[in-house]
């Protein structure tokens, strides 16, 4: 998988929040085989907590995708992205412009505006967006080369609320990397996203809040791999009626 010209082996992108401990975060990162983890920026006290976290992240040896989580306007998101670029030394930014505090859905108007500004400033934008095709087109026009449609509201673990819309995105944007971001709760959700032809899955809570995050990281990686292979191998069409798998020809007659 190529993301902004970089070859990425793992199709699982993992968030770093909400783990029981830094040690368990490190275990989950390793067990999942992820090559990209998301991080954020927050107010720093003089105790240097953020510097300590950054040290841990660097030791994990994976690529970092900083986010603009919590930003509600394009301006906030742009400023946060500029600050993230300086701290993390990367042009990659997971762009979130939140439009509603209840369901954390993207403000797609602010998102497109911020994506344009940041792309013009040389950022490589990973926009957290809805599954709307027109918004996707506007984001590509704004300079994005990756789209990250939601599966369900952030942290809800509801899985894919609208698989048809994701299928339509795959058909409409055949050559754009599509990463389902948000809403994945279980391995089967991640597998389904991949069966629909998504290029990757970004998740956090499903692993961090699992009883055993390391184990769940591994399970997610396997589910993503299985779904990807299923898509590549081209699944059979559903049928309305039963069709015997075993040939009728040559059946014995006993009456």
């Amino acid at each position: 998988m190529q993301l902004y010209g970089e070859e990425i082996g793992s199709r699982l992108l993992l968030g770093t929040a909400q783990y029981p401990s830094p040690q368990i975060l490190a275990e989950a990162v390793e067990a999942s085989g992820t090559e990209i983890i998301t991080v954020s920026l927050r107010r720093e006290g003089a105790d240097g907590a953020g510097t300590g976290f950054w040290q841990l992240i660097k030791e994990l040896g994976v690529k970092v995708l900083p986010n603009t989580a919590g930003c509600h306007t394009a301006k906030e998101a742009v400023t946060t992205a500029q600050m993230a670029r300086e701290v993390f030394g990367s042009n990659w930014i997971k762009l979130e412009v939140i439009g509603h505090s209840d369901n954390l859905q993207p403000d797609v108007f602010g998102l497109v505006e911020a994506a344009r500004i940041l792309s013009d400033e040389g950022f490589q934008v990973f926009p957290y967006t809805t599954d709307d095709l027109v918004v996707g087109e506007k984001l590509l026009e704004a300079g994005c080369e990756v789209l990250m449609p939601w599966g369900a509201p952030i942290g809800s673990g509801q899985g894919l609320r609208n698989p048809d819309a994701l299928r339509a995105m795959r058909a409409h944007f055949p050559n754009v990397p599509l990463i389902v971001d948000a809403g994945i709760g279980r391995p089967s959700d991640a597998c389904m996203a991949m069966e629909l032809g998504m290029d990757a899955v970004l998740l956090n809570t499903a692993v961090a809040k699992a009883g055993d995050p390391g184990w769940m990281g591994a399970a997610m990686a396997q589910a993503i791999d299985a779904g990807r292979q299923g898509f590549a191998a081209q699944m059979m069409e559903r049928r309305d009626m039963a069709v015997p798998s075993t040939p009728i020809l040559g059946m014995a007659v006993f009456d």
């Binding site: 770093t16 998301t38 920026l41 107010r43 953020g50 946060t80 701290v87 952030i154």
Partner: peptide
């Protein structure tokens, strides 16, 4: 003045 540093994020 805002002073930000890395933190866990999703």
């Amino acid at each position: 003045l805002e002073i930000l540093a890395p933190m866990q994020g999703g």
